[in-house]
């Protein structure tokens, strides 16, 4: 409990700030969608683009130019991904860095230390997802848009949290082998960027479609949830499994490794 309190005191402000930013971003997406004919403007814009770029935009707007499709696009926007990934990567990097030598010389087992950090990370990604969803719900309400059902919003929050948990699990695994925070966080960001662009390329270029199942971002499906009202059990299972495998392997390494 002391450890959780310590980790929270170090990171709560950062997590909360990014969560509020995500919420504000989603709120602004609703504002834009409701006050400007974004769909019409985008359609005109897309028609003037070369075919490859038309495909690229279409890949990001699978839900079409309807308000729901544009809100789904807001959740797939690089800003939304960057905010979530920043939290996951920073928390995973800092878990095995800094004053760890002094902290683990306290009467604190490695299990408690590791467990405390993972619990806080899970709470963080869930909180940030909730704040983002709050932004969307509030935006729809304030701007008089057709509202999504609570089940859809919960599924979206779960999917977003699972994606960030997977990023956290992978970065934590890298962190468990690293000695310095810099290279670990760089690796985390690189993996996220690669996954994001690989997914985009897989969608716009049919010959690269085989890569899609190997990217994390393919399992984040706001369009499926908000536009098609579809289920996301398999994406959730895949992302959950990645998060769990990453954290488990990180623990296997961390429990026996020399520190710092």
């Amino acid at each position: 409990m002391n450890l959780l309190r310590h980790v929270a005191s170090r990171h709560a402000r950062f997590v909360l700030s990014l969560g509020v930013l995500l919420g504000a971003f989603q709120f602004l997406i609703c504002a834009a969608v409701s006050s400007v004919n974004v769909g019409g403007a985008l359609e005109t814009l897309v028609r003037s683009l070369p075919p490859l770029f038309q495909n690229l935009v279409a890949s990001q707007l699978l839900g079409g130019f309807s308000p729901s499709g544009l809100i789904a696009f807001g959740w797939n926007h690089p800003v939304a991904h960057a905010l979530g990934a920043a939290i996951a990567i920073v928390l995973a990097t800092r878990a095995i860095a800094g004053a760890i030598e002094l902290l683990l010389s306290q009467p604190l087992s490695r299990r408690s230390y590791f467990g405390g950090h993972v619990v806080f990370a899970v709470l963080s990604v869930v909180s940030v997802s909730a704040l983002g969803i709050l932004g969307t719900a509030l935006g729809q309400r304030v701007f008089g848009m057709e509202r999504f059902g609570i089940a859809a919003l919960l599924r979206l929050a779960g999917n977003y949290a699972a994606l960030q948990a997977a990023v956290y699990g992978i970065t934590l695994l890298v962190s468990s082998f690293g000695r310095e925070a810099g290279p670990v966080s760089s690796t985390g960001y690189l993996l996220v960027v690669l996954s994001y662009f690989a997914e985009a390329i897989g969608r716009i270029w049919s010959r690269a479609a085989w890569i899609l199942p190997w990217t994390l971002h393919d399992y984040f499906r706001p369009q499926t949830i908000l536009v098609d009202q579809g289920g996301i059990l398999r994406p959730l299972a895949v992302l959950g499994a990645v998060a769990l495998a990453g954290a488990s392997l990180a623990w296997a390494r961390f429990r026996t490794r020399d520190l710092p």
Partner: peptide, 21 residues
């Protein structure tokens, strides 16, 4: 043994503290 460290004090040679605290 983590519990045993309650009565032990340790100063690392390469002391790192949380800079923001």
């Amino acid at each position: 043994d983590a519990a045993g460290r309650a009565t032990v004090g340790y100063l690392p040679g390469d002391l790192a503290l949380y800079g923001s605290m």
